[in-house]
């Protein structure tokens, strides 16, 4: 599986470099000015979306799934393969953000910061899993209609998780009751762990959906 992952990273290095060149300066700004974590994390979500669009579009256009499915690796490994590329990229961004916050706050990060990072990570896992399910589920059915309905539902879930990502740490100029309510629900141990559980569950489900495909053409 490692050669396939390595190939994906090297093949897409131009888009990775482009996105890093936007995120890293933003994180540097956070290190200097402080208090920009939420804005940087929102920029990170946009970058993951762009990464998904660029990689996904080319994969579909060139039908590269055919290549990986023909390789002597299991279909399960193929299904799992979509996560490491995004997750490694995401974790590298999180490390950058964490370091920038550590600098701006002179080494003292509260426990809330941990929940903040875990909530964002869990929501990214939900988004990536739902996009994967949306891509694969139409190929699990003989007739197109049920698959297409489930595809739309899965993609709506991905959009919903993206909204939640944006608003799980509320904007500063929102009225206090709203910001308090959102922060109390999501930026808590229960919120973080619950979302992580959901994210991992959906990731496993997306691999199962991939395994259940009737064809691997696009």
């Amino acid at each position: 599986m490692w050669p396939l992952l390595k190939a994906e990273i090297f093949y897409n290095k131009a888009i990775f470099i482009t996105l890093y060149s936007i995120i890293v300066p933003a994180a540097a700004l956070n290190a200097i000015l402080g208090g920009l974590e939420e804005h940087v994390s929102r920029l990170m979500l946009v970058s993951v979306g762009l990464l998904g669009i660029v990689i996904g579009t080319e994969e579909i256009k060139t039908k590269r799934i055919r290549l990986s499915v023909q390789l002597p690796i299991s279909i399960r490994q193929n299904g799992i393969m979509r996560f490491p590329v995004f997750f490694m990229y995401w974790m590298s961004l999180m490390v950058v953000l964490w370091i920038s916050s550590l600098i701006s706050r002179q080494g003292s990060l509260s426990l809330d910061y941990l929940w903040f990072i875990l909530v964002k990570t869990a929501l990214i896992l939900v988004v990536v899993s739902c996009m994967g399910i949306g891509q694969d589920v139409p190929f699990c059915f003989i007739q197109r209609a049920p698959g297409d309905i489930l595809r739309v539902l899965a993609k709506l879930c991905a959009v919903g998780a993206s909204f939640l990502y944006f608003f799980s740490t509320p904007f500063e100029d929102w009225p206090p009751p709203v910001t308090d309510a959102l922060a109390n629900i999501f930026i808590t141990p229960a919120g973080a762990l619950g979302l992580l559980f959901l994210g991992f569950g959906l990731a496993v489900f997306s691999v199962i959906v991939f395994e259940r495909r009737r064809s691997y053409f696009e």
């Binding site: 060139t62 590269r64 290549l67 299991s74």
Partner: peptide, 24 residues
């Protein structure tokens, strides 16, 4: 068996569509 891919080592396949990493 799609989850036990040893059988694929014995196959060389040229399909109807040729798929590569296009920029390589």
């Amino acid at each position: 068996n799609l989850n036990k891919p040893a059988w694929k080592l014995d196959i060389g396949y040229v399909g109807d569509i040729q798929v590569f990493y296009e920029r390589w």
